[in-house]
Amino acid sequence: MKEVKIVTKDLTLHYGQKMALNSINIQIPEKEVTAFIGPSGCGKSTFLRSLNRMNDLIPSVHIKGEILIDGLNIYEKKIDVVNLRKKIGMVFQKSNPFAKSIFENIAYGPRINGINDKKKLTEIVETSLKNAAIWDEVKDRLPDSALGLSGGQQQRLCIARTLAVQPEIILMDEPASALDPISTGKIEELIFELKKNYTIVIVTHNMQQAARVSDHTAFFYLGELIEYGKTRKIFTSPDIKQTEEYITGRFG
């Protein structure tokens, strides 16, 4: 296993009285893809959102335990959440480009981080779009509205937007579930390329997708981490019966 990037220690999360995560302990390696799988309501998206403190926005959420990124507890008071989210980008199920030009969608993040030099911004936009494998499709229409792009292109644009602020970790919540198989394939290829430089954590309901793109797989059920291991192992001989039943569709 490579260096560990994210560690959680006894992470427990409640929505009001309801426990959504029960004492999760996991070590997520750097520059690899880790997939979270499990049935709806198992806590995998809640857990993903905890990793860049997106749950802070929900008033009823109470968190116990620790999440350490590069050894630092991200729930410590001194942590600047804006900086944290710069370091940990997120891509959602539904692509959410700003109602701005393609160029401005990408330049937005760097600009609010103080980069105003046009040449520098152009460079960032080009690199980000290239790294998100969408440059060739949009290079001649950068001033056009991002809303005119197809769903698959919009999702890659959102990934490019995430890359523009140079994160270390990218969290993806069902990034391809609303896309056709060709766009899905492009996103999966992109994930494979991006892991050379980024730590990627992906939540997916599509188990074949988890099998295809991830190096490690974590199976969640009823707020518990049931099994975590190499994807190759989980999908050939999982150790836990519940994992076996879930991935083979015998669940329930």
């Binding site: 188990m207 074949q208 099998a211 999908f235 050939t236 001989s237 999982p238 076996e244 991935i247 083979t248």
Partner: peptide, 9 residues
């Protein structure tokens, strides 16, 4: 059926 785990084996 894209079998996995015990089915794949």
């Amino acid at each position: 059926a894209q079998p996995v785990a015990t089915d794949l084996r």
